[in-house]
Design a protein around this nucleic acid. Structure first.
Lengths: 212, 212
DNA sequence: CCTCCAATCGAACGTGTGTTCTGTTAATGA
DNA sequence: TCATTAACAGAACACACGTTCGATTGGAGG
């Protein structure tokens, strides 16, 4: 996304503040006052820029006719079930459609919408052990996954290596009749395997780490 | 709560509809049109009644100054300013109270409350380069920091090494008159330094990583 | 019959508010 | 050096919009 100028950011902040506090959008002059701008035309000018950039929607000739996207107004957070642990020596516990909504008792995680970006069937796994360090993932980290049996070239996936009896997180590439698994750590060498030796268990969306 | 007359119910419905559709509240005349009422004063009259009954809040003399209480703003999510980049060769740009809500952060990040846990003065930095790999942090990751000039033993901190002219992320321990900086990677050896060679720039709260 | 009052209507008033127009300034590039 | 453009200032315009006021209607209660 494009960078905002300080003024644009300032106006967006003022907009959100006003909306939060009052419950309805500000007028051009409300924004002008909040930002210490000396002319309404400056506000109008920047609002037009922000609209062109997609940060908001305006209705012309309408007082307070500013609409910040739904995304920003509502709870931008999603509950993600924690399906279990991910470790080197065992396949990851991918939730099935049956178990998917039975997660009431199980653990869940509150994740910002920004992390998920509207994806469905997302779950989380806690990393056990240090076998993922070549993906810069440490013991105790949380991995966000999307259930998927297939993946596109370049996707970071959880791959079950049947022969080695081991799960690993690597970027996947199809090359000729083989599959290349590329570690995030570029100093490490890729793995070349036959398609029937690898089973994609899910796509890796992101990584979360807490430090206390 | 008391029963609504058909007219009041009708007006409330029109209000919600408009708000959902447009993103901002309607004017008196918008409601009038939507309800097929022939006078604005009728709308005004009924809005006053509804306000007295607590169904909404109005700001007088303000166009579209209607606030339905329904928009509950439970912030299970927190906006965190992105202060800039963190790289090996330069100190991190810690926001000062002046720049906190201003130009320094042209960007912001939506983060789940769970990540912050109520902490104040939290900001984010984008990692540039691979100098933090010994903390399992890769190029492009986002580090959540809490502004702090001091730290407790065991805290993960952003430490500015004056002699080396370099910032690093390590756990800090005071041992005797010296300071031990312990990499997250236990295979790497700790650094021992004099207190005046180290400047704590902030505490590391967490790490975020997106994979696309 | 009457009064009382909630609910509505139509019109008018004053100002809040989006918009536009004319300039000015600073930065950029040919 | 001049032309171009983004960003801003100040003033003015037109009308959208909240408010108010007088009048009417219809029902409830005496």
């Amino acid at each position: 996304m494009k960078n905002l100028t300080p003024r644009q950011y300032q106006i967006l902040e003022a907009l959100r503040d006003f909306l939060n506090k009052k419950g309805y959008p500000p007028t051009v002059r409300d924004i002008q006052r909040a930002c210490g701008i000396s002319s309404t035309s400056v506000v109008d000018y920047n609002l037009k820029v922000l609209e062109r950039m997609g940060y908001l929607r305006r209705d012309r000739e309408v007082s307070r006719g500013i609409d910040i996207g739904e995304r920003e107004r509502r709870t931008a957070t999603v509950r993600v079930p924690v399906a279990g642990y991910i470790a080197a020596g065992e396949p990851i516990p991918v939730p099935t459609p049956d178990t998917w909504h039975l997660e009431a008792s199980a653990e869940a995680l509150e994740v910002a919408e920004e992390m998920i970006k509207g994806r469905e069937e997302v779950f989380a796994l806690k990393v056990k052990g240090t076998s993922m360090v070549d993906a810069y993932i440490n013991d105790g980290d949380v991995v966000l996954m999307q259930a998927a049996a297939t993946a596109n070239d370049g996707d970071m996936v959880a791959a079950w290596l049947k022969k080695e009896n081991e799960v690993t997180l690597k970027r996947i590439y199809r090359e000729g009749g083989r599959i290349r698994l590329q570690p995030a750590n570029i100093q490490m060498s890729p793995l070349y395997l036959d398609p029937d030796e690898v089973e994609v268990q899910g796509r890796v969306i992101g990584v979360l780490r807490w430090l206390d």
